[in-house]
Design a protein around this nucleic acid. Structure first.
Lengths: 223, 223
DNA sequence: ACCTGAACACCGTTCAAGT
DNA sequence: ACCTGAACACCGTTCAAGT
């Protein structure tokens, strides 16, 4: 056993980001503090600042890693429609598994790694035959939907996890469905009518239905 | 002049939320602290806790008010397509004017006020003739796009405002455009090719183009 | 019932001091 | 060059004490 004092293994930005990701995945965004991170890395809180400028850089780097991992493999899919579905689902699942990533997806193209997502989406949109002068608008619209849909799902999942203290996710959904069914029919006729749909829906399928809607829109605009 | 001591006008949740909104609009999300809020209200920090449970409730209430204001007037538009464009633009402009609202839009249907947005969107989607079994998926997809697009725009605006320290928004956009033009053509061919489009694009028009894409998708799915 | 303001338990960040 | 850990300037929140 080494004597108390200097660390034996040296710190690195990669090791710090990896440890931060573990904390974020295990205990959520609030649990990531420099003190907790330092404890896990068996170092002092100030040591981390030698490798990362501040907490924002740390979170940005952790999210960028997660986003980079998201896209691996999708370039092997030949059909552009299939590829777009796959890209969308990858982002969706990444956010579902790591809700803390959603915060950084909301930063849009300012978030490192997001350029790669836009490029992947844009290439497939181009392959679908969208005219050059509509490529940018179309690709960013698809990206906006993907990020919005993934973010909404993560928010709903977080909320249902909170609501259902001891119960299951299905129970929380059932409770919200009942709340919808009890809404004023004059003020919220649509949402009220959707109470059953809410109870029975599947988040992934619903998200994919939106992707399909955009693909159909792209197809319609070609005519 | 009243003697130093007890406040003359009594506090209320509404007054607190209004003051919080002023701080948020004037100086951003980080500027809202209970101490700053108490100073503006000429009271003690602890007094606020008599009226709101905590900071989250305060921010949620402020965002809910902003969202409620967003929808006033859109129910007077008869044509469902026009109404959907108007709803989308209202949300977009609200987030553009009050970037701090974006954080709470990301909470989705858990955010008070959001049910009203979903209902407004859903009613118009229904009027477009979408079949009953696709109403829920379609309405939530449109909502996801609206929230995603508005959020992305707010993030980009925030970033460009930061980047362009003394310069204009157009300068910041030009700089980012040059960065895109300098990207590796093998790794990011699409984004690189979009450099000019980025420089010349208009955020609102781009957002609306996405709304149109969804409307066209809805039209295509009816067949 | 409502407000005051000091106190508490935390945080991100800095920095003199070490090796 | 890299790390330590105490210190600083803040926060959100609580609560005994006032009116």
């Amino acid at each position: 056993m080494p004597p108390r004092g200097r660390r034996t293994e040296s710190l690195s930005k990669d090791a710090i980001v990896a440890a931060a990701t573990e904390i974020l995945d295990a205990d959520g965004e609030d649990a990531l503090t420099f003190r907790a991170l330092a404890a896990r890395l068996e170092t002092g809180a100030g040591a981390i600042y030698w490798h990362v400028a501040n907490k924002d850089e740390l979170l940005t780097a952790a999210a960028a890693d997660a986003i980079d991992r998201t896209l691996t493999g999708v370039d092997g899919i030949a059909d552009p429609r299939e590829a777009l579905r796959a890209i969308a689902l990858r982002v969706f699942d990444t956010v579902d598994d790591h809700p803390w990533v959603a915060t950084h997806l909301a930063r849009g193209l300012g978030q490192p790694g997001m350029i790669a997502v836009l490029d992947a989406v844009g290439q497939r949109v181009e392959e679908l035959g969208v005219p050059t002068d509509r490529l940018f608008d179309t690709a960013t619209a698809v990206l906006s939907y993907i990020l919005g849909g993934a973010g909404q799902n993560a928010a709903n999942a977080r909320r249902h996890a909170q609501d259902a203290q001891a119960g299951s996710r299905a129970e929380a959904l059932g409770q919200e469905s009942q709340r919808w069914a009890g809404l004023d029919v004059d003020r919220y006729p649509f949402v009220r009518a959707m109470a059953d749909s809410l109870r029975d829906h599947d988040d992934r399928e619903q998200f994919l239905a939106g992707v399909e809607l955009m693909l159909d829109g792209i197809g319609a605009q070609k005519r």
